[in-house]
Design a protein around this nucleic acid. Structure first.
Length: 292
DNA sequence: AAATGAACCAACCGCGTCAAA
DNA sequence: CTTTGACGCGGTTGGTTCATT
């Protein structure tokens, strides 16, 4: 029993949005606000499905979207967050004001993953690669294989030839389960901005990152060459993200909201994990705990 | 100048989650 | 408790543009 499609696709526009459609959608949302995506297109006079409207708005039309090149600081932050959170693009995007998950995902796939490989780092695990060149070649081959598959598909499609070859079963990796110890409103991630001591949506580039300065931990090898043992807990704005607070010297920022022990607790938990003999303890669990 | 391949990125698709009925 | 519908997310596709031959 499959799920019913989100909307009837019959008679709906697909593909690139026209300026007129953009205007209609923007005006409607300005007048009535976001939400109710399913009913919105009809009300806005659009022949699009709600999903498509939402995507267009979220990724392109929203007024707070920052367009243009991703800065080196943003680069750095994306890499750090990816090491911590994996492919959780929306969470990563949530730390980069004005950037969308789609944009970051695309940027990662087209630029950053390649860059990491060329620097000798596996973009998936953030561990050192034994043979970066080999990896780069492998990925290139895979890509060109896919591309030619797409080409074939397209050709077959356009000629109306049915796909006769055995189809590969689609595998879906299990997603990490979110264990809720306290609840947040839907679509809200942690308000990481509390770390930076700034508040409100105006914050520009405020972030928090966890960093271990050695080459052993998969999260941390993006920062090598420094003392080796240190544990850093980054607190600050984009301009000072190289200021590491050494684990032993760690002090809570005075501008942290008073009474909020949960963050300090998380940090302590993190330190405990690091103290454990096996450095490969499940740090992912800790990363997960940051998500809830 | 034309052909080909690579890169980019907007948009689509399918699934998971959550809340309301 | 189960079902249903809406929303959001991440993976993937495919059209367009750019670079190379």
């Amino acid at each position: 029993m499959g799920r019913a499609p989100c909307c009837s696709k019959v008679g709906l526009h697909r593909g690139p949005w026209t300026p007129r459609e953009d205007t209609l959608l923007t005006k409607y949302i300005q007048a009535h606000g976001e939400g109710h995506w399913r009913s919105m297109p009809k009300k806005a006079g659009l022949l699009r499905c709600g999903k498509s409207c939402r995507l267009r708005w979220m990724n392109y039309l929203r007024p707070d979207i920052k367009r243009g090149n991703i800065t080196p600081d943003e680069d750095d932050l994306i890499i750090r967050l990816h090491a911590l959170l994996g492919n959780r693009w929306s969470l990563i995007a949530g730390r980069l004001p004005g950037r969308t998950d789609n944009e970051i995902k695309n940027y990662w796939n087209t630029h950053l993953s390649k860059r990491l490989i060329s620097e000798g780092t596996d973009p998936n695990t953030h561990k050192k690669l034994s043979d970066p060149l080999k990896e780069l070649k492998r990925r290139k081959n895979n890509k060109s294989k896919n591309k030619s598959n797409n080409m074939n598909k397209q050709k077959k499609k356009s000629k109306g030839v049915a796909n006769v070859g055995p189809e590969k079963p689609k595998l879906h990796l299990p997603k990490p389960v979110r264990v809720t110890s306290f609840s947040l409103p839907r679509n809200d991630s942690i308000d990481w901005n509390v770390f930076s001591g700034s508040s409100g949506p105006e914050i520009k580039g405020g972030y928090v990152g966890l960093e271990m300065v050695n080459n052993v931990n998969p999260w941390c090898n993006f920062k090598d060459g420094e003392n080796g043992v240190g544990v850093g807990f980054l607190v600050g704005d984009e301009d000072d993200h190289d200021d590491l607070v050494n684990g032993s010297d760690f002090e809570c920022q005075s501008d942290l909201p008073s009474g909020d022990n949960s963050l300090a607790k998380l940090y302590e938990e993190y330190l405990d994990l690091l103290k454990m003999e096996e450095t490969q303890v499940d740090l992912d669990n800790f990363a997960e705990s940051l998500l809830i």
